[in-house]
Design a protein around this nucleic acid. Structure first.
Length: 267
DNA sequence: CTATTTGTTTATCC
DNA sequence: AGGATAAACAAATA
């Protein structure tokens, strides 16, 4: 589930514990989420450090401990972060726990294990953190950049391309459907068939959906308004808020796309 | 029992 | 070489 705004939400779950000292650590290292951990000392190497900074880029999270300990977390499909206290009882799927002074715990849980834990100890930021593409919400993501990216992939199906983290970091399945719905583009359209005017609209809607998602979900995980596609897309016989006609769900590029055929008429 | 899942990586084909 | 596509990953849920 976690896309841009959900990941930002999880970042803010841990953030209030910044400044705390780590006094214990436990990890189920046989779980798949630790497949890229190559440091034999992990997670004990974090004991004694101070939790300093919470960072996010696209769907990637990075937490910095005592200036040199970089902990990367990716939520995969079912990952979530908790800030637990002594009264918390549900430990199922808690595969990484950092015990803090003051009886609090930083917890990463991930039932489906598609998530990933990364760790690096050095003054300099590791490559998995420093080499990520710029944020879609930043001014550095320009129409020209997007246009060039699309032009290199004329044969791609637009829905699939929007899920490409190299070009559109943070976008996931629901955001991609929301963007195409707001742009009135059918999900199976080939990128080369999208003209300049429509590309400009697409660019605006990408920005809009990113900002909307952050405002609603990253900030307290509020329920999105019914004017979005969001609240209708998972329901059987869901109704398009624009046309009051039934939405359609179909597999495109291996993922379920939800769209409104009478509204998304750009083919 | 079968089908499905809001993500990424890898293999394979073009 | 680089892009397009499908399968694999794991486990819960319907």
């Amino acid at each position: 589930m976690p896309e841009l705004a959900e990941v930002e939400y999880f970042k803010r779950v841990w953030e209030p514990a910044e400044g705390s000292k780590v006094i214990g650590a436990s990890a189920n290292l046989d779980k798949r989420i630790f497949r890229d951990i190559d440091n034999d000392e992990f997670p004990n190497c974090l004991i004694g450090t101070h939790f300093e900074q919470s960072l996010r880029s696209g769907k990637q999270l990075c937490f910095l401990f005592s200036s040199t300990h970089w902990l990367g977390l990716h939520m995969g499909m079912t990952g979530r972060l908790k800030l637990s206290d002594d009264r918390s009882e549900d430990f199922k799927y808690d595969y990484l726990t950092l015990f803090l002074e003051g009886h609090r715990r930083l917890v990463f849980q991930d039932p489906r294990l598609f998530g990933k834990v990364l760790y690096h100890n050095s003054r300099k930021a590791p490559k998995w953190w420093s080499c990520l593409p710029g944020e879609l919400t930043s001014d550095s993501f320009t129409y020209e950049q997007m246009d060039a990216y699309l032009s290199r992939r004329p044969k791609s199906v637009i829905k699939s391309l929007l899920l490409d983290q190299g070009g559109f970091p943070g976008i996931g399945n629901w955001m991609a459907d929301e963007i195409l719905w707001r742009s009135r583009i059918a999900p199976f359209v080939r990128v080369g068939d999208i003209g300049t005017q429509k590309r400009k609209e697409l660019f605006q809607k990408i920005k809009e959906v990113c900002f909307d998602a952050l405002a609603v979900i990253a900030d307290g995980w509020k329920r999105p308004p019914n004017e979005w596609l969001f609240n209708h897309r998972w329901k059987d016989k869901g109704i398009c808020p624009k046309t009051n006609k039934e939405l359609v769900r179909e597999k495109i590029g291996g993922r379920t796309a939800c769209w409104s055929p009478t509204w998304q008429t750009y083919r």
